[in-house]
Amino acid sequence: MLPTVNQMLYYHIASSDEAEAAIEYRSRIADEEEGALHIEYPLHEQTGRTKRLFLGDELSVYFLSPDGVKHYFDSHVIGFKEDAIRLVRIVKPDPERMTKVQRRSFLRVPAELELAVKMSEHERFVCYTDDVGGGGISFVSDGKWALQSGGTLDCWLLVPYKNGVIEHVSFQAEIVRVNLLESGRKQCMIKFVSISDTERGKIIRYCFEKQLEYRNR
């Protein structure tokens, strides 16, 4: 499924500035041509202010289908068009490289990311993830930690993007399952029970970038 004229696009603009890269913008598709979409100038999703784009700017984009599925793709600015209003030309997505994410079903990707875990005021540790997704993650920890199904954890995840920006994502999670490994370490599967849409969006964006990276190998 490809986006169509008058559809709204939502996206992040690649930036070395951490705060700028985290901002979500939206634009309406005003027109299209072979290989390109013509979009209106970006509006800040929260403030409604316009944002200037430059030739070559990289975008991580998604749009919503009527059934609530998010379709993600990477694009970049390839030019501008003077119409009744100035439009931005971006590369039309390749259907083979688009990622679909159901509203309540999130993409998971293998990833070794640093995770800080707080079990109680006196029990904290740092470990690494096995995989991450918009609905939860799994990690491997030392066997000495008393991790049990149904327990809750406060977590902070370091999420690096391909543009060099590193985000810190905080959330509360519930332990779904704990496996004891042959090495004596523990593999723990957790699901998010308290996470903001902004924080979840950071993880989904990372998953999207990693999936595109795997496809391009």
Rank of each mutant, 00 (worst) to 15 (best):
V101W: 09
H168M: 08
R89H: 02
S120F: 13
P160T: 13
R177V: 03
E112I: 11
K162G: 01
L87H: 06
G133A: 12
F171A: 00
S120L: 11
K92I: 11
N163C: 13
D142Q: 04
V101T: 09
V101C: 01
K162H: 04
I85D: 15
L157Q: 04
G134R: 08
R108E: 05
F106E: 00
S149Q: 11
G136T: 07
R89K: 14
E114V: 12
S120Y: 10
V126L: 13
V91N: 08
W145Y: 15
L107K: 02
S183D: 15
E123F: 01
F139T: 04
R124A: 12
V109N: 01
D94F: 01
E114R: 12
G164K: 07
L87C: 10
G133L: 08
E114G: 10
G136I: 01
L87M: 12
I85N: 14
E123T: 00
I166C: 06
G133C: 08
E182I: 10
L180K: 15
V140T: 15
C127H: 03
F125C: 15
K162A: 05
L113G: 09
L181S: 14
V169W: 06
V159A: 00
S141F: 06
E123N: 00
N163H: 05
R124F: 03
A116F: 09
G150I: 03
H122R: 10
R104F: 02
P110N: 11
S120I: 10
Q172L: 00
L157M: 04
I78S: 05
E174F: 01
K81E: 14
V159E: 01
S141E: 07
I166H: 07
V140G: 12
S149M: 10
H168W: 05
N179M: 08
V165P: 09
D130R: 08
C155S: 13
V126Y: 14
K162R: 03
D142V: 02
V178F: 02
V132D: 00
R86I: 04
Q102M: 04
F125H: 12
A84L: 12
C155W: 00
G143Q: 13
K92H: 07
G151R: 05
E182Y: 13
E123W: 02
A111M: 04
T129K: 13
V178D: 01
L113V: 09
R124G: 10
V132K: 02
K100N: 01
E167V: 06
L147F: 06
Q148S: 14
E123G: 00
E96Q: 09
G134E: 08
D131V: 07
G164V: 07
F106K: 03
Q148R: 15
A84F: 03
K118C: 06
Y128I: 09
L153N: 13
F125Y: 15
R89L: 12
L180F: 02
F139H: 12
D154V: 01
W156K: 14
G150Y: 03
L115W: 09
S141Y: 10
